[in-house]
Structure formats: C-alpha cells, structure tokens
C-alpha cells in the first residue's frame, strides 16, 4: 500500500501527466525554424567531420548538396514549409553498408547538437521519433 502511494506521488508530483492547456508549438518552431534547422544541420556535419568512425562513409559525398537535402528533409519532417527533393532513404543509403553502430553514432551526434542548441527534451524526442522508423531503410542496405 505504501509503495503504491509513493508511485502515485512520483508520477503525479512530477507534473508530467498534468494536462497543459496551451497548444503545443509545431516541432518546426521548436527546432528554431529555418535558421534553427540550418544550424542543427551544420552542427551535425561538424560532428560527422570529427568522428573518425563514420566520416569515411562521406568521402565521395557532395557535402553542400547533402547539407541542403538534410535540412530540407528535417524541415519537411518537422512540419515546416519545405518539400524534400532528394532520393528516398532506401535509395540514398543502399550500398553504403551502414551498421547499427553508424546509426547509433549519428543519433548521438544529433542529440549532442540539439543539447548544445537548448532544444527542449520533448522536442528532441519528437524529432527522434520521426527519424527512428528510418532505421530499417538506412542500415544494412
């Protein structure tokens, strides 16, 4: 009985389950709009460049093009006013032989960049939830 009360206290006390009446801002806004997403993309490229374990995958990549397409994709995914014009995830990652480790590392880099930019934890998770399903289209192709 005691334990049950503690549980209720912990979950309710944290305020997480309390309903807030304000409408949630769009993810696009939470990421900082066009300039925010540009900064996240650049931050991610910086992380990739300094990660010797994954940078090799990008040695033949047209980086400016990749940058623009990634920003475009993040913009569209998060509900911004963009239409992604690149190849499908399956098409663009087939033949790269990416591993789960490559994917894990990219996710960690993205989290690092979002932390640096003070993106709220809930917005980080909203973006990650949109990216996670792409795992099977990207890894071991």
């Amino acid at each position: 009985m005691k334990l049950w009360k503690l549980m209720v206290l912990l979950f309710c006390g944290s305020g997480l389950l309390a309903c807030s009446s304000q409408p949630t801002p769009s993810l696009y806004q939470q990421l900082g709009g066009e300039s925010g997403i540009a900064a996240i993309t650049d931050g991610l490229l910086h992380q990739i460049e300094h990660d010797p374990l994954i940078v090799n995958h990008f040695r033949d990549t047209d980086i400016p093009r990749f940058r623009d397409l990634l920003a475009e994709q993040l913009c569209e995914l998060s509900g911004g006013p963009c239409v992604y014009s690149g190849a499908t995830m399956e098409e663009s990652h087939t033949g790269l032989n990416l591993t789960t480790r490559d994917f894990d590392r990219l996710v960690n880099h993205l989290i690092t960049v979002m932390q640096q930019r003070d993106i709220p934890y809930s917005a980080q998770n909203r973006l990650l939830a949109l990216l996670a399903p792409m795992y099977s289209e990207v890894v071991e192709r």
């Binding site: 997480l16 389950l17 709220p120 934890y121 809930s122 998770n125 909203r126 990650l128 939830a129």
Partner: peptide, 9 residues
C-alpha cells in the same frame, strides 16, 4: 516508445 508521454520516452 519515443515521445510517448508528455514528450518523454
């Protein structure tokens, strides 16, 4: 489950 409850996993 990412973003499951109040933006938490």
């Amino acid at each position: 489950w990412l973003d499951a409850i109040a933006g938490r996993n």
